[in-house]
Computed example of a mutant assay.
Amino acid sequence: MLKRTLFFLFIALSNFTFAQNVDSITFVTAKWQKQRIAPKTKLITHHFDQKNLFLANQNISYIEVKNKGNSPSFEIGASPKELKTTATFGMENNAIAAINGTFFDVKNGGSVDFVKVNDQVINSTRLEKNNSRARHQKAAIVIENGKLSLKKWDNTENWEENLTEKNIMLSGPLLIFNHTEETLDTSAFNRLRHPRTAIGMKPNGKIILLTVDGRQENSAGVSLFELTKVMRWLGCTSAINLDGGGSTTLWVSNAPENGVINYPSDNKKWDHEGSRKVANVILLKKKQ
C-alpha cells in the first residue's frame, strides 16, 4: 500500500514538474511583438491564445526600460481624492507611458496606501481595523531623480514616513526581493486568477512595467504565484504586485485605441475601453 501511494505521489510530482517546464519553455520561446516607444524603451506584447500558458489563454503586455542614459524618467502621478483613468493621468502629465498604481478607496477616492510626490504627502497609510498593515503596505516603489527602485518594510511603525526619497508609493505584496522569492500565503487574493499589474527590476538595471489581462475567455489572468513565475522568466530579481482587477491598465502615448495597450476588464468586454478610474499611476516621462 505504501509503495503504491509513493508511486502515485511520484507520478503527480513528475506531472507537476513537467507542466512547470512546459510553461517556462512556452513563455520564453513565444514570438513576442516588440516596438520602440522611446529611447532605450520597448513595448513588448504577446497573446497566448492556445490555452498554452498555465493551461489557459493569457494576454501579457509590458514595457522594458533600460533606466540609464537618455531613457525616460519615472514619476508618480496621483490625486488626493479624484479618481481618473490611467490614460487621463498619462495625458495630463504629458507622459510617454503610464501604468496603474496602488490600491485606493473606490467609493471615496484617494489611495489607502502612502503616496508622496515631489516630497509632498498625497495620501497616508490607512491601517486595517486591528491597526495592522495590509499586504500592500509592506513594500514601496521609490523614485529619486527619475530612477525607480523597490524597498521592503523594515517592521517599524512609521517606516514609509522615514524613507528619504521624495517620491514614494506603497504597494504589494512583494513577489521577489533581491533574488529571493517572498513567501505568499494561500489567501484568495493570492491564489485566485485576476488581471494583474506588476513592476520588476532586472540585475542589468532594466525596469519592467507589466500587465496580465484577466476575467476574459481570451485571457484568464494569473494568481500571484503565477505572476511571480512570469516575472522570474523575464529575468527580474525583484518584483512587486500593484493594484489589479479592473484597474489593470497599460497606456502608451500615441498608440491606437486611445493609447490603452491591454484589455482592461471593468466593462467585461474584450476591448480597450474597460479601464477603471484610479487614484495614482507610475509614469514614464521624457528626460528633461
Rank of each mutant, 00 (worst) to 15 (best):
Leu2Trp: 13
Lys3Phe: 13
Arg4Tyr: 13
Thr5Gly: 06
Thr5Asp: 13
Leu6Met: 14
Phe7His: 12
Phe8Arg: 14
Phe10Trp: 11
Phe10Asp: 00
Ser14Glu: 06
Asn15Arg: 10
Gln20Arg: 09
Val22Cys: 08
Ile25Arg: 15
Thr26Ile: 09
Thr26Lys: 10
Phe27Gly: 10
Val28Cys: 12
Val28Arg: 15
Trp32Glu: 09
Gln33Glu: 15
Ile44Ala: 04
Thr45Ile: 07
Gln50Ala: 14
Lys51Leu: 10
Leu53Gln: 11
Leu53Cys: 03
Leu55Met: 11
Asn57Met: 12
Asn57Cys: 12
Asn57Lys: 11
Asn57Ile: 12
Gln58Gly: 02
Asn59Trp: 10
Ile63Val: 01
Lys66Leu: 15
Lys68His: 14
Gly69Lys: 09
Gly69Gln: 07
Ser73Val: 11
Glu75Leu: 13
Glu75His: 08
Ile76Ser: 03
Ile76Cys: 05
Ser79Met: 12
Lys81Glu: 05
Leu83Pro: 00
Ala87Trp: 02
Met91Tyr: 14
Met91Ile: 15
Ile96Phe: 02
Ile99Phe: 03
Ile99Glu: 02
Phe103Asp: 04
Asp105Val: 02
Val115Asp: 04
Val115Ile: 12
Lys116Phe: 07
Asp119Tyr: 02
Val121Tyr: 00
Val121Ala: 00
Ile122Thr: 02
Ile122Asn: 00
Asn123Ser: 10
Thr125Arg: 15
Arg126Thr: 15
Glu128Arg: 14
Asn130Asp: 14
Ser132Leu: 14
Ala134Lys: 12
Lys138Asn: 11
Ala139Lys: 05
Ala140Pro: 03
Ala140Val: 03
Ile143Leu: 00
Ile143Lys: 00
Glu144Pro: 06
Lys147Asn: 14
Ser149Asn: 08
Trp153Arg: 05
Thr156Arg: 09
Thr156His: 05
Glu157Asp: 15
Glu157Ala: 14
Glu157Pro: 00
Asn158Gln: 11
Trp159Ser: 00
Asn162Glu: 05
Thr164Leu: 12
Glu165Lys: 04
Asn167Phe: 08
Asn167Trp: 06
Met169His: 01
Met169Ala: 02
Leu170Glu: 14
Ser171Arg: 04
Pro173Ala: 01
Leu174Gln: 02
Phe177Ala: 01
Thr180Gln: 13
Ala188Cys: 00
Asn190Met: 08
Arg191Cys: 02
Leu192Asn: 15
Arg193Thr: 14
Pro195Val: 13
Asn204Val: 12
Gly205Phe: 12
Gly205Asp: 08
Lys206Ser: 15
Ile208Asp: 02
Ile208Thr: 06
Leu209Ala: 04
Leu210His: 05
Gly214Asn: 06
Gly214Arg: 01
Ser219Ile: 08
Ser219Glu: 11
Gly221Arg: 04
Val222Cys: 07
Glu226Val: 00
Leu227Gly: 03
Leu227Met: 00
Thr228Val: 04
Lys229Ser: 11
Met231Asn: 06
Arg232Tyr: 07
Trp233Ala: 01
Trp233Asn: 01
Leu234Gly: 08
Cys236Asn: 09
Cys236Asp: 05
Asp243Trp: 13
Gly244Ala: 01
Leu250Asp: 03
Ile261Gln: 01
Pro264Glu: 04
Asp266Ala: 10
Asp266Arg: 11
Asn267Pro: 08
Lys268Arg: 15
Glu273Tyr: 06
Glu273Asp: 11
Ser275Thr: 04
Lys277Phe: 02
Val278His: 02
Ala279Trp: 02
Lys286Ile: 11
